[in-house]
C-alpha cells in the first residue's frame, strides 16, 4: 500500500507553500469499509488524508462541483489521483474543461479497490477492521481475521484495470505499478449472446434503475454545463421511471461517454440498484479502441476522439 505519511507531507507542503489552494483527497469514513472524499485547505488538517482499499470514488469529480457551483475553479487544486483519476483529469484537459494549470496531480499507484459487498454480510458486521492488499490476497483483520483472494473481492473494473499508475502526474507517491488486467469474461459472454437475450439482460438491468442520477453525478466526465437530462424544452427524457425512459437515460450517458470514459467505475460503485453500468461503458470503450485505435485520458495534448479525424477511420456505417 502507499505511504500515507509521504502523501500527507506532500499535501502539507503544497498547501503551506501556497502552490495549491486546496487538496482533494480521501478521509476515513464513518465505518471501516467506507472512505470519503475530503477537501482540505488548512495545512494542519492533512493528517485526515488516507489511502486504503475503499477509496473508490474518482476525485476528479469534485472539480466539477466547484466549477458548477462557483462558476469556475477557484484557484489551484491538488488532487490525490489514482490511475483512473489522473486519466479523468487528462481527459478534462483535452476537452478544455480544465487547464493543466488548474491542478497539481498527487499521483498514487493504485493496487485496486475492494468492493465491500463482496466481503459478505458476516465480515461487514465486524465493528472495526483493517484491510490490506498483499499481492494476490486481501486481508481483513478485525475481531476475526479473514483472507480473500484479490480476484474475489476487488471491484470488477479494478481487476480489469490497465493503468493503475497515473499516465501523468506532478508527484508520484511511491513506485509505479504495472497493469495486469484480467480477461473481460463478462463482456465476452454478453457479446456472445443473441440480440434478444442481450436486450432482455439490459431491460432487466434498466428496469431496476431508480433514476437517482448517482451514476451521472459520481462521473468525473459528466461535467457538462446544462445536462441534456435536465432540459425541459425539449424534454429528451421523461421523468417517468420505466424501462423505456430508463433505457434512454443510460444510452444517452453511454453515448456521451464513448471515447471519454476512463473506466474508473464510480458510476457502478455509486449505483444502489446494481445496474452493471461498466459493462455498457466497457463495450463502447473496446469498440472505440478496436475501430479507432483510441484510448481516452492518456495525453492532455491529444485530440478528443470526436474532434479527431484520421483517413484510416472505418466508415462502414456511412451509406
Amino acid at each position: 500500500m502507499i505511504d500515507e505519511g509521504r502523501m500527507r507531507e506532500v499535501a502539507r507542503d503544497l498547501l503551506a507553500s501556497g502552490e495549491v489552494d486546496c487538496v482533494i483527497g480521501y478521509a476515513r469514513g464513518s465505518v471501516w469499509y467506507r472512505a470519503r472524499p475530503v477537501a482540505i485547505s488548512d495545512p494542519d488538517k492533512v493528517d485526515m488524508l488516507i489511502f486504503n482499499p475503499f477509496c473508490m470514488q474518482n476525485l476528479a469529480t469534485w472539480l466539477k462541483f466547484e466549477m458548477k457551483e462557483n462558476g469556475g475553479l477557484q484557484g489551484k487544486y491538488g488532487v490525490v489521483a489514482k490511475g483512473c483519476t489522473a486519466r479523468a483529469l487528462i481527459q478534462m484537459m483535452q476537452e478544455n474543461g480544465i487547464s493543466t494549470d488548474d491542478v497539481y496531480t498527487i499521483g498514487v499507484p493504485c493496487p485496486g479497490m475492494v468492493d465491500p459487498r463482496k466481503l459478505g454480510d458476516d465480515v461487514l458486521a465486524m465493528e472495526d477492521a483493517r484491510v490490506t492488499l498483499a499481492g494476490e490476497r486481501v486481508v481483513v483483520e478485525g475481531e476475526r481475521r479473514k483472507v480473500f483472494s484479490r480476484d474475489d473481492v476487488l471491484h470488477e473494473t479494478c481487476l480489469l484495470c490497465r493503468y493503475p499508475t497515473p499516465p501523468l502526474y506532478d508527484v508520484l507517491i511511491g513506485e509505479g505499478i504495472e497493469g495486469r488486467p484480467a480477461e473481460d469474461k463478462n463482456l465476452a459472454h454478453l457479446e456472445s449472446l443473441p440480440a434478444e437475450e442481450r436486450a432482455k439482460y439490459w431491460e432487466d438491468a434498466f428496469s431496476r434503475c431508480i433514476r437517482c442520477y448517482a451514476c451521472r453525478n459520481a462521473c468525473p466526465l459528466c461535467y457538462c454545463d446544462g445536462c441534456a437530462l435536465e432540459c425541459l424544452d425539449p424534454q429528451w427524457v421523461y421523468r417517468s421511471v420505466e424501462v423505456s425512459e430508463n433505457t434512454l437515460y443510460h444510452l444517452i450517458r453511454a453515448y456521451h461517454l464513448t471515447g471519454r470514459c476512463v473506466e474508473c467505475g464510480s458510476c457502478e460503485f455509486s449505483c444502489p440498484a446494481d445496474v452493471p453500468l461498466m459493462e455498457l461503458n466497457r463495450k463502447m470503450a473496446r469498440d472505440v479502441e478496436r475501430m479507432f485505435n483510441y484510448v481516452p485520458g492518456m495525453d492532455p495534448k491529444a485530440k478528443p476522439l470526436l474532434g479527431a479525424y484520421d483517413p484510416r477511420d472505418p466508415e462502414g456505417f456511412i451509406l
Partner: peptide, 20 residues
C-alpha cells in the same frame, strides 16, 4: 463538500414524499 447531489438518500428514504 463531499455530497454528489444524487437522489439516493431521498429516494430510498421511507419518509421522503416530494413529488413533481
Amino acid at each position: 463538500a463531499r455530497c454528489i447531489g444524487c437522489g439516493i438518500c431521498t429516494y430510498l428514504c421511507p419518509t421522503c414524499y416530494c413529488f413533481d
